[in-house]
């Protein structure tokens, strides 16, 4: 599968004129003020920008966790803002994998059970689910850690469990909000190499928020946000390519 989009590909993600407002009246503020962004199958996009510039907000919208106040979002041509809660849940279940900034693993739950969770919602049979989850854990280098709970794992290990949970379903898109935010630079590079591998080997489209230019360097495209708007959008040769 090619990591390079061609002009004829239908866009996977198509945001046009997306705004997002919070609050109402004088207390109201606009987190997004008209974002146009198109991402094709197989791209590796890094989103950068100052704190409060709307990066997490756009990630939540792309991840179908939130809906735009105005504007439209098409995922694989589907108008997401017209879907109801359950239909958006289906999109998250079958198309998207999320890696959250704060890991967001279930506490007092083993790494294996955490990774199995999305497969449970997909309704996979027991044995297959277990095997896939163990494979995913092996992919992120956590062989032998399956029965450990998050409190028994280091930050880097927890982040890798979170990544395993996001990719275990082979989603169309991997969304990662500051996946290296809590890690030292050596661990960060490990995680980035892993994400790059998914992008290149499995053709998973990656959208990643990061503050660090070193991490953004892994991406094939860097989008800068400023004050709720796209300030710049540059293609580059990813570090690994």
């Amino acid at each position: 599968m090619s990591a390079q989009p061609t002009a004829f590909d239908a866009p996977l993600i198509e945001l046009s004129g997306v705004t997002k407002s919070y609050g109402s009246g004088s207390a109201s503020m606009q987190a997004l003020r008209g974002v146009d962004l198109t991402i094709h199958q197989g791209e590796f996009v890094a989103i950068m920008g100052a704190s409060g510039s709307g990066k997490s907000t756009i990630m939540n919208i792309i991840g179908c966790l939130d809906t735009p106040t105005t504007g439209s979002y098409r995922f694989k041509g589907i108008a997401v803002e017209q879907l109801d809660r359950n239909q958006r849940a289906q999109l998250r279940r079958y198309e998207l994998g999320f890696v959250f900034q704060g890991f967001n693993l279930l506490s007092r739950t083993s790494a294996l059970e955490n990774v199995e969770l999305p497969l449970i919602y997909r309704g996979l049979p027991n044995a297959e689910r277990r095997q896939l989850a163990l494979n995913a854990l092996a992919t992120v280098g956590l062989n032998g850690w399956a029965s450990h709970t998050p409190s028994e794992l280091s930050g880097g290990q927890q982040q890798r469990v979170a990544i395993a949970r996001a990719i275990v379903t082979q989603p169309a898109v991997l969304l990662a909000d500051e996946p290296t935010g809590n890690l030292d630079s050596a661990r960060s590079v490990e995680v980035m190499e892993m994400i790059t591998r998914f992008n290149q080997e499995s053709g998973i489209t990656v959208v990643m928020v990061t503050h660090e230019p070193d991490m953004a360097a892994f991406a094939s495209r860097v989008v800068h946000f400023h004050d709720g708007l796209v300030a710049s959008d540059k293609r580059q040769a990813g570090v690994a390519s």
């Binding site: 849940a89 289906q90 998250r92 279940r93 959250f100 967001n104 693993l105 999305p118």
Partner: peptide, 16 residues
């Protein structure tokens, strides 16, 4: 609440 949020983000539907 957080756990429920995680489940929903992963794709759990309301009735689940």
């Amino acid at each position: 609440t957080r756990e429920i949020g995680i489940r929903m983000a992963i794709g759990a539907m309301e009735r689940e």
